[in-house]
Design a protein around this nucleic acid. Structure first.
Length: 218
DNA sequence: CAGTCGATGTACT
DNA sequence: GTACATCGACTGG
């Protein structure tokens, strides 16, 4: 029943992948797959929406004012995780990019669940509103939105600062098959500063991205 | 469908 | 005190 994963050993995204310019990493993460193995449960999905955050000149970034206790993982070498709690109850998962000390990262905003879907449903709980959605939309509901990504994958602050290249708990793999994705870009969601930067990337014309208003993207 | 609002921990002014 | 890279419940059309 549970799919066999050979991902622990081969086919991982490398440090070289992550230590590139943040916008390139953000774009290239679309179509890649994010996995967690927490306890005995393995869950994962395909990344369909991300946002880039820089340090220099990006007032919306947590790293803008330099390292603090919360954001210190953001200043690790590219390929580490940065997980934080927002609004007191939700978690957000970021992949750190570039060289150590840079303070740049990519926020994973949406995945399409592919592995461990039953586990993800359990983590989400049975939601009355979601229960009224059709099958496809119910699946999308599991992973669309940064907090739902974390909930589905079981990510919390214990997953902060992990080396995603070497961790057996959280890791990333390239797309299953190489394919050309149509990508849309636009302004980031839910921020109040540096809103002019078009640093949100999503797989274009995909029915399962987190916000339906893709039409407003540049 | 759109709009509003409460929940709730942490960082920072 | 206030803001926050959000979500889900609830309202009104």
């Amino acid at each position: 029943m549970e799919p066999v994963l050979n991902s622990q050993l081969n086919q991982r995204l490398s440090t070289q992948f992550f230590t590139r310019p943040t916008l390139a990493v953000a774009r290239d993460l679309l179509g890649c797959r994010l996995f967690t193995r927490l306890g005995t449960e393995t869950t994962g999905g395909t990344i369909v929406e991300v946002e880039a955050y820089h340090a220099a000149g990006d007032e919306a970034s947590h790293s803008f004012r330099g390292p603090t206790l919360r954001n210190q993982s953001m200043f690790l070498e590219g390929g580490h995780s940065y997980v934080y709690l927002i609004y007191g109850l939700h978690h957000c998962f970021n992949v750190v990019t570039e060289e150590p000390g840079t303070g740049a990262a990519v926020l994973v905003r949406a995945i399409l669940p592919t592995v461990g879907i039953e586990t993800m449903h359990k983590r989400a709980g049975e939601i009355s509103r979601a229960g009224r959605l059709g099958e496809a939309r119910l699946l999308a509901h599991l992973g669309s939105g940064p907090a739902r990504v974390c909930r589905a994958l079981g990510i919390d602050r214990r997953c902060d600062g992990l080396d995603l290249v070497g961790s057996d708990r959280v890791w990333l793999e390239p797309p299953e098959r190489s394919l050309e994705l149509a990508v849309a870009t636009g302004p980031r969601v839910g921020i109040t500063r540096s809103t002019d930067l078009p640093w949100r990337f999503c797989v274009k014309d995909h029915p399962l991205v987190s916000r339906p208003r893709i039409a407003t993207l540049g």
